[in-house]
Design a protein around this nucleic acid. Structure first.
Length: 368
DNA sequence: AGCGGATTAAGTTTTACTTCA
DNA sequence: CCTGAAGTAAAACTTAATCCG
């Protein structure tokens, strides 16, 4: 298994950014309205009310879902809609008109609804707030910025428990601002699914960003450029980690295979040594080339002169040992097939006519 | 300035345990 | 006593953010 990454050309602008209408703050505001829509929808359909009891936090919400069992939990926590998170996938027809990705135009969604039908833009962000919200130095826009975290985060992320669904806009807003105020705690923003999906798409095209792309993405997603940059850094790190895991797995398998092979060879070596001690003439046999008889799947030997150190033929050895291990008629020893090949013994010889016309008669004679 | 690597910490999910009807 | 639901805490996990070289 290999992880295939299309790195693309970093200098190339994101094609999907071109294809996609820009995410405006208006669109993002629409997301928020959408979140409210979910809430009311769920309430009406499932018949349970989500209440913030204060202090209970997420646990309370989780329990709230538990009450409905796992299946219902899924049904309840996720909108009963097939959300295609890929930015350019056409919205399914079954999807209600208000469930559209912010970056899709009305034409793309196939909706006849005009811009006015997009729902209430409860939390419209002044465009300047995004555009001017440059890098780190912008103290008024911490990572916890109510602007970015609330506006997108609050919107569509219904599957992560009910926090987003039940938070009043005011409360969410004040929560973020509180964190901003004390400044001592590092508050982590959770990107919305849509933002993540969008970033993923970007990453597929380019796993690194140039400043222009970074700015464009940040604007598009209503994030700070720094956030986009960090996301890409973390994403690269994750990719690398995954690749490392894959490599590790592969090496592990290689190691296992080699260990097995090694074990097999050691065993063969042991057998050969045992044979050598039990049959001293073996070392005087000439070197042989082992070949396979296609008909009976037995190994045959061919005498060679290339390795004079190996002395005489195996057949001679077999004859010397009284042929106790040989086939009574042909002088052929049975051979067991193993995964890694054929374990062979100097005694396991079978010379075929076609393979070794010269040595064959000799071999069979010796065996008999 | 930008990146990778290491690390931190917030947020979320899972799990184990207790209580209670 | 057993069972299932509910509640809770802690562990485990994910990931945004930070720091440093």
């Amino acid at each position: 298994m290999e992880l295939a990454l299309s790195l693309g050309d970093p200098s190339k602008p994101f094609s999907f950014l071109d294809k996609t209408p820009k995410l405006t703050s208006k669109d993002l505001g629409f997301c928020m309205g959408l979140g409210n829509g979910f809430r009311s929808q769920e309430k009406g359909k499932d018949g349970f009310e989500v209440e913030s009891k204060g202090g209970g936090g997420d646990q309370q919400h989780q329990q709230g879902f538990k009450d409905h069992g796992d299946d219902q939990k899924r049904v309840s926590s996720d909108p009963p809609l097939q959300l295609d998170l890929l930015p350019f996938s056409p919205v399914p027809r079954t999807q209600p008109p208000h469930l559209r990705f912010p970056w899709l135009t009305d034409n793309q969604t196939g909706s006849s609804e005009g811009p006015a039908g997009r729902g209430l833009d409860v939390n419209r962000l002044p465009v300047a707030a995004v555009a001017d919200d440059a890098e780190e130095g912008a103290a008024l826009s911490s990572p916890n910025s109510a602007v970015s975290s609330f506006q997108m985060d609050f919107g569509i992320r219904s599957s992560r428990g009910k926090r987003d669904l039940e938070l009043e806009p005011e409360r969410a807003s004040s929560r973020a601002s509180d964190d901003d105020e004390n400044g001592s705690t590092r508050k982590k923003l959770r990107l919305s699914k849509e933002q993540s999906a969008f970033l993923e798409e970007s990453f597929k095209e380019h796993n690194t960003l140039n400043p222009k792309q970074k700015l464009a993405l940040a604007k598009q997603l209503n994030l700070r450029p720094r956030q986009v940059e960090v996301w890409f850094q973390n994403r690269r790190a994750r990719t690398k980690l995954k690749q490392t895991e894959v490599d590790c797995e592969y090496l592990k398998r290689c190691c296992e295979t080699l260990t097995e092979e090694n074990r097999r060879l050691q065993k063969e070596l042991q057998e050969l040594r045992a044979l050598k001690t039990s049959q001293p003439f073996y070392m005087q046999l000439p070197a042989t080339t082992l070949t396979m008889c296609p008909s009976c799947e037995r190994v045959a030997t061919t005498s060679t002169t290339a390795q004079p150190a190996a002395a005489t033929t195996n057949n001679a050895a077999a004859a010397a040992s009284g042929g106790s291990n040989t086939d009574a008629k042909s002088g052929v020893l049975p051979l067991t097939k193993t995964r890694g090949g054929y374990p062979f013994s100097p005694l396991q010889t079978h010379v075929t006519q076609s393979q070794t016309p010269q040595s064959q008669p000799q071999a069979h004679q010796a065996a008999s």
